[in-house]
Simulated assay, not measured.
Amino acid sequence: MTRKLPQSASLATPAKGAKLYAPSAANNAEAICAVLAAHAPATGNALEIASGTGQHVTAFACALPGLVWQPTEIDPQRRASIDAYVAEAGRSNLRPAIALDATAPGWHREHGGQSLIILINLLHLIPTSAARTVLAETMAALAPGGCFVIYGPFKRNGLLTSEGDLRFDSELRAADPEIGYKNDRDIASWVSATGAQIERREMPANNLCFVVRNRPTL
């Protein structure tokens, strides 16, 4: 799914060769890695949804070497950037990017059994119906007991809590009235309806991280 987005929502700039560089990815990678180190499984298959430039997934593959990382991205220019980062990293636990539209129903059937799935800075860029599809498909793709980590900006109890969030959400909705910040309580409700356990963590720059643990095998 592609949407009309304001310029402030896409801050990746050309770097060396096919590589793109996003300052936000460089700034938040360490904080997200800390969450993953505390909650992710030590081994297994890890899927990143909407991997963007590729900066995050290469950092994660270095920080969690026991997981085999599969980046995904709908945009071909960004897949080329991911592959450039992957090639530069030269890690055996990091695969080239594959095309995936996570808002399309049914993708879990091809990508099931994941020990870890991570989703960064996507839900505010898509409509609510698409966000619910992403979450439902992700939960279906998780292995029993698997971990799902969601990171990004969210409303708190229906409210935007900083001037920057108010401005960015307004820019998003001006570009496309169907997109914008999602409510933290809605995310928790949609995910916990599957029987999963969910923990919310405050993150730097007024972001949130949801750590979701899928039900184990009965």
Rank of each mutant, 00 (worst) to 15 (best):
T2E: 13
T2Q: 12
Q7M: 14
A9S: 11
T13I: 11
A15S: 13
K16V: 13
G17M: 10
G17V: 10
A18V: 02
K19F: 07
K19A: 14
K19G: 09
L20M: 14
P23F: 04
S24E: 12
S24W: 15
A26W: 10
A26K: 14
N28Q: 06
I32H: 04
A34C: 06
V35I: 14
L36M: 14
L36G: 07
A37P: 04
A38Q: 14
A38L: 12
H39W: 11
H39F: 13
P41R: 08
T43G: 01
T43A: 11
G44R: 08
G44N: 07
A50H: 03
G52D: 06
G54Y: 01
H56D: 07
H56F: 07
T58Q: 11
L64N: 08
P65S: 12
W69I: 03
W69S: 05
E73L: 02
I74G: 06
R79Y: 00
A80C: 04
A80V: 06
A84M: 04
E88W: 04
R91F: 02
P96Y: 05
A97C: 02
A97T: 01
I98P: 00
I98L: 09
A99S: 12
L100Y: 01
L100N: 03
A102R: 03
T103S: 07
T103F: 01
P105D: 13
G106K: 09
W107M: 05
H108V: 02
H108N: 13
H108F: 11
H111Q: 12
H111N: 10
G112F: 05
G113Y: 08
Q114R: 08
S115Q: 15
S115D: 15
L116M: 07
I117G: 00
I118G: 05
I120S: 14
L122C: 04
L122Y: 02
P127D: 09
T128V: 11
T128Q: 10
S129P: 05
A130N: 02
A131M: 09
T133Y: 05
T133M: 06
V134K: 00
L135R: 01
A136E: 15
T138Y: 00
T138M: 01
M139T: 02
L142R: 04
L142D: 05
G145Y: 01
G145S: 05
F148C: 00
V149K: 03
P153L: 05
N157R: 15
G158Q: 11
G158V: 15
L160D: 08
L160Y: 01
E163L: 11
D165Y: 07
L166P: 02
R167S: 12
D169H: 08
S170P: 00
L172I: 10
R173T: 14
A174H: 13
A174T: 15
D176R: 06
I179A: 08
K182A: 08
I187F: 12
I187M: 12
S189M: 15
R200W: 05
N207Q: 08
N207V: 08
L208G: 01
T217Q: 10
